[in-house]
Design a protein around this nucleic acid. Sequence first.
DNA 1: TATTGTTATACTCTATAACTATA
DNA 2: TATAGTTATAGAGTATAACAATA
Lengths: 166, 166
Amino acid sequence: MADQRHDPVPLALSDDLGLLVSRLGTVARVRIAESLSPLGLTMRQFAVLRALGAEEGLSQAALGERLKIDASSIVSVLDDCQQSGWTERRPDPADRRRYAIHLTPSGRRTLVRALAAASRAQEEIFAPLNASQRKTLHKLLLLLVGERVVSSPPERRAARKTAAGR
Amino acid sequence: MADQRHDPVPLALSDDLGLLVSRLGTVARVRIAESLSPLGLTMRQFAVLRALGAEEGLSQAALGERLKIDASSIVSVLDDCQQSGWTERRPDPADRRRYAIHLTPSGRRTLVRALAAASRAQEEIFAPLNASQRKTLHKLLLLLVGERVVSSPPERRAARKTAAGR
DNA sequence: TATTGTTATACTCTATAACTATA
DNA sequence: TATAGTTATAGAGTATAACAATA
């Protein structure tokens, strides 16, 4: 509520499509995560449950690759899912190094409830849009996301300053 | 590339508007951060520079509030900006507790270059869309983000599990 | 007493590297 | 030698709490 100069460049977030997308993404992620929280699951666990709901018996490696989750991270995600009674590791008869991950009945029920919860969260997020607008948005997003349709927020790390060897 | 059952619920990410938004947001954030990285600045520093470009002489507290960055975090962000020679803390004659944060000439140049870099990143992200589609998307996003147009990815934290022994 | 800036610290999330047991 | 799963650890990013100076 102060300036309003004729900037040669867009300094306001609202002018910037990329930052706008980034921000909305954060809002959506947080809201969905919040809606999942009462059920006791995280975004990654949700992603795992959904992947298994679509195709069961995946190995940990396959799951990790599909969801862009590091192999070492998958371990603890599945540990937690297992402790909550949603998934189980079954020995793969063909390869003794490998597990076949399966959904338990409880896991299946939780998946259904989680999908409902996430759906309600979306209802809030997209409340300002009518059905036709949502459809348009969906179409545009699909164009943008293209192939890379996977699941769960995977990447991070990119900006770091000066020295910082790494 | 396996199943294709008639799921009663949308298990694919591409069906889910909220997750789609979340994912695209992540993609955008990472790309923009990457484009900023060669200039030596982070998203938060970029946000600070932009805020100062729009209105100079803000206090740290004002900056933090505007960008939804914690007061304690602002300190180190500004420390880094200052060390890079982009900003300076000037004593506020009216209130000796307070600093007036200003952009240096170098900071101003960096801001311009950063805006250009971010703009190029967007060009990549939104390449699949033509001008008209981008405009539509922009309009829809503004409807969704509404007032809460601030800057930089602020919130986090939401999902955590049960006991969480680990 | 409230506010500005600061420091020290702790927590979440995630990846990297090294290891074991298979194949 | 390569692969599936595992462990230990480290790093980035952020917030919380307590504090000093000033209002």
